[in-house]
């Protein structure tokens, strides 16, 4: 068993005994899963106005009705499919923001509990230590994202127009959840862990880590107003950018982590 696996197992065992730390992530994830239902299903029923009648959605109707993978949706179904797909970004990000507390606390929390010093006296490398810390926060976050994704897809199968659920199985939807989601999680949580390495309290680390959410929230807004369409090419570029950001953040994290100072000077 490698050092990363050993420390990761500890992180997960620790989190299992403290499930309350994921409550914010769970709430935000549930809210993110509920939000597209509210917009695409509940509001039209409550107001008696079909979304397809709005001129704002005509482009979405044209695009989504003609996609063979969606099996010939009606106009209302096409708008719902478009809304569900755009909100996938929120679904991906929500649990990450919830897990930010875990990542932000990961290093500075160990400093405060005085558990970091004996850990640093072992042969574990800084890369292994940071990787275990990031994965310890990212794995539950990604699992939570997948659970919310399954709930949203299941809910769409039951509550939305027939065939809308298929939008969750489109290549770009799956790439958003299974590629961009984990990569964005890693980037956000790495930033939080970097901050945690130098911070004296978890709160300041959390605030810095949350910054990574801003560009992705901007992407959501851009997608909703039609400035950007999440095509396979756009997703591939975003994924590449996130991959590069992750590699860079890991290098920065290692450079920032003043191992010997923590052992000898941090109090």
């Amino acid at each position: 068993m490698t050092a990363v696996a050993a420390l990761l197992a500890k992180e997960l065992a620790d989190l299992r005994r403290n499930p309350g730390v994921f409550l914010p992530g769970l709430l935000v994830g549930a809210l993110a899963a509920f939000l597209p239902f509210f917009v695409a299903v509940i509001v039209p029923v409550a107001t008696g106005e079909r979304l397809a009648d709005s001129s704002d959605f005509q482009v979405a109707i044209e695009v989504y009705r003609t996609r063979p993978a969606l099996g010939g949706l009606g106009a209302e179904g096409a708008v719902q499919a478009w809304i569900f797909q755009q909100f996938l970004i929120v679904l991906v990000l929500a649990p990450v923001t919830g897990s930010m507390a875990v990542a932000a606390y990961s290093v500075v929390g160990e400093k405060q509990a005085r558990t970091l010093e004996p850990l640093l006296a072992t042969p574990i490398t800084t890369l292994e230590l940071l990787a275990a810390k990031v994965l310890g926060a990212a794995i539950p976050a990604v699992a939570l994202t997948l659970a919310c994704f399954a709930v949203a897809a299941g809910g769409a199968a039951v509550l939305a127009e027939p065939g809308v659920w298929r939008v969750f199985l489109l290549g770009e939807s799956l790439a958003t959840v299974f590629l961009i989601g984990p990569l964005a999680s890693l980037a956000a949580l790495q930033l939080a862990v970097c901050a945690s390495s130098r911070a004296v309290d978890a709160r300041s680390a959390q605030q810095l880590g949350a910054l990574v959410v801003l560009p992705i929230a901007g992407l959501l807004v851009a997608a909703l107003v039609g400035a950007v369409t999440l095509t396979a090419t756009v997703i591939a570029w975003i994924a590449l950018g996130l991959l590069a950001a992750n590699a860079l953040l890991m290098r920065i994290g290692i450079a920032l982590f003043a191992r010997e100072s923590i052992l000898t000077r941090w109090r």
Partner: peptide
């Protein structure tokens, strides 16, 4: 082998 001033044990384990 290092024994730090505080035991530095993970309380929830």
């Amino acid at each position: 082998g290092l024994l730090t001033e505080a035991p530095g044990l993970w309380d929830r384990l």
